[in-house]
Write a protein that binds this DNA or RNA. Structure first.
Length: 210
DNA sequence: TCATTAACACGGG
DNA sequence: CCCGTGTTAATGA
């Protein structure tokens, strides 16, 4: 676990801290498609992603979803740090985009290290900053892009976090992430295929240009 | 005009 | 057979 930690966070966190995280954090392994955390779940600590990728979604009371952003290796999920402001329940759903490994750091340790280590403080603040930027981007695309544009952006984002132009997905999943209907997604995907942007297969989309 | 819902046929695993 | 896909028709904002 120490090796994975160093690969993902070694560039920002000092050796002592990495050792402490390895010693006190809970290692967690999730496989693709698993719900890592759901609305209302108690937050056990600060999740620090070691490898893989996690999809973060907002969900309303009817169960409708809406993609917020992806977490990649070296990201921590600052949304869970709502704890600092008194909430102990998750307000998001997190689904494994790939098989992933993470360390969950207990909150007492997070408090402690934020006071003790400048580099840890830095990590948390940077994480907040990045998540906020990604949220702003999600709002932008909702406000300024039509569904065709949102779908194209969505596909290129997924290509980026997966590091592959071959996406294992279905039209229904895309529809859920973009909070629209599958009919529309099918039509837009067909259109993108005719434009030569993608290639459609069953349970798979090959992204040719992005 | 463009999205949504319902309904259907086709085909692959 | 079940599920993912592609399409159409009717309806709504």
């Amino acid at each position: 676990m120490k090796t994975l930690l160093k690969e993902a966070y070694g560039h920002i966190l000092n050796e002592t801290l990495l050792g402490e995280i390895a010693a006190t954090g809970a290692f967690k392994e999730v496989s693709k498609g698993m719900i890592v955390m759901d609305i209302g779940d108690p937050i056990p600590g600060l999740p620090m992603l070691l490898n893989g990728a996690i999809k973060v979604l907002r969900v309303n009371d009817e169960g409708d979803e809406m993609l917020l952003y992806f977490l990649e290796s070296g990201d921590s999920c600052a949304m869970t740090l709502g704890n600092f402001f008194g909430s102990t329940k998750s307000t998001i759903r997190a689904v494994a985009e790939q098989d992933s490994n993470m360390v969950v750091v207990p909150l007492e340790k997070v408090y402690h290290w934020m006071g003790e280590y400048a580099d840890f403080r830095q990590l948390v603040i940077e994480s907040f900053n990045t998540r906020l930027k990604e949220l702003a981007e999600a709002v932008d695309s909702l406000a300024f892009l039509d569904l065709h544009g949102r779908t194209a952006k969505y596909l290129s984002d997924r290509v980026k976090v997966n590091g592959s132009t071959s996406l294992d997905t279905t039209h229904a999943e895309i529809a859920a992430d973009l909070h629209t209907s599958r009919v529309v997604v099918s039509r837009i995907l067909k259109q993108l295929e005719r434009e030569g942007t993608i290639e459609l297969h069953r349970n798979r989309i090959e992204v040719l240009r992005f």
